[in-house]
Design a protein around this nucleic acid. Structure first.
Length: 306
DNA sequence: AAGATTACCTGAAGGC
DNA sequence: TGCCTTCAGGTAATCT
């Protein structure tokens, strides 16, 4: 499942392979992978050069320069901070040679391949032709895809997405999370609080912080929450360095599996001994999500009597 | 208003 | 063998 580290690896691959290249064409095998429609997306981006690839949480933002423009510059980036969001009120019109932006989300099973030896199969949904270099979008379950969004640093379509988990300072994260009453596991998955963690890394972060997934913020002091914030960021950065996690069918952009899988401590290890204390990893359901934890390293939260 | 549930999809796995 | 059910999970929409 692509989470922040896997998406970050895709971002880096796209930058290296495609930045400054012109999108010459778009071959559509599944129309639902392009929103609002294949026609609208083609009109907006075909013929333009890829000027910028940014990641926010699990989203990738692909910015295309206007026709004939130098794709290097990105004025949006200069005004980082609160003002930038208000500046980009009147984006240039789609099509007609203006700048344009696509938001890509891989959801559950989306994959990007830039390797030339990928053999199209029944799950191939799109081919993007960048000056002779094909980029394949494959998605078994058809949840993901590209959406045309306005050319802003923070498109309206992503307004509900909170700050990136690797960028949010502890005090901001704490302010967004501490008053909530849901279990930590659910709060870590909540993209509106902070974006990037998915089911795998949420479980791994809780184990590393020594916190039971059913713990609630009110059960903890600030030091324990700081530990969780730090461990979440640590595990994300570690996974990025190792090319992400291959679980079930996720493969990296080059078709190779991520190397972080063998480093998982609890996710997918139900019944296997904890690497630290030897007790068997348990699997429960929290907020409808499969949740793995070690009963030795993550003791039940002390119930505060009402 | 926050938390919980369902829809969206397909394939794997298990029961009988 | 094959049919049926359940499960996997990110997010949007819909409920309570």
């Amino acid at each position: 499942m692509p989470e922040l580290p896997e998406v970050e690896n895709v971002a880096r691959a796209l930058r290296q392979a495609l930045l400054g290249r012109r999108l010459d064409g778009l071959r559509v095998r599944f129309a639902g992978a392009l929103k609002p429609s294949p026609r609208a997306v083609k009109r907006a981006v075909v013929g333009k050069r890829l000027a910028e690839v940014r990641r926010h949480g699990k989203y990738l933002l692909l910015r295309f320069a206007p026709d004939g423009a130098d794709p290097g510059g990105s004025r949006d980036m200069l005004g980082a901070g609160g003002a930038a969001d208000r500046v980009a009120e009147s984006p240039p019109p789609y099509g007609a040679g203006g700048a344009a932006q696509l938001a890509l989300h891989l959801r559950m099973t989306g994959q990007i391949f830039v390797r030339p030896d990928y053999r199209p199969d029944k799950h191939l949904r799109l081919v993007l032709d960048f000056e002779g270099r094909p980029v394949y979008y494959r998605d078994l379950r058809k949840f993901g895809g590209f959406a045309l969004v306005e050319d802003a640093h923070r498109p309206a379509a992503l307004a509900h997405v909170g700050p990136d988990m690797l960028e949010i300072p502890f005090r901001d994260w704490h302010a967004r999370l501490a008053r909530r009453r849901a279990p930590l596991k659910s709060l870590l998955l909540h993209q509106g609080i902070a974006a990037g963690l998915g089911n795998i890394y949420a479980d791994e972060a809780l184990l590393r912080a020594g916190l039971h997934p059913l713990t609630r913020p009110a059960d903890l002091d600030e030091a324990a929450l700081r530990r969780l914030w730090r461990e979440a960021r640590t595990v994300l950065r570690l996974a990025i360095r190792h090319g992400g996690t291959t679980y079930q069918d996720f493969l990296r952009f080059d078709g190779r599996p991520g190397r972080f899988y063998g480093m998982l401590r609890v996710y997918g290890r139900e019944g296997e001994p904890c690497r630290a204390c030897g007790r068997p990893v348990r699997k429960i359901r929290v907020g409808g999500r499969g949740t793995h934890y070690c009963p030795g390293c993550q003791p039940e939260p002390a119930r505060r009597r009402p």
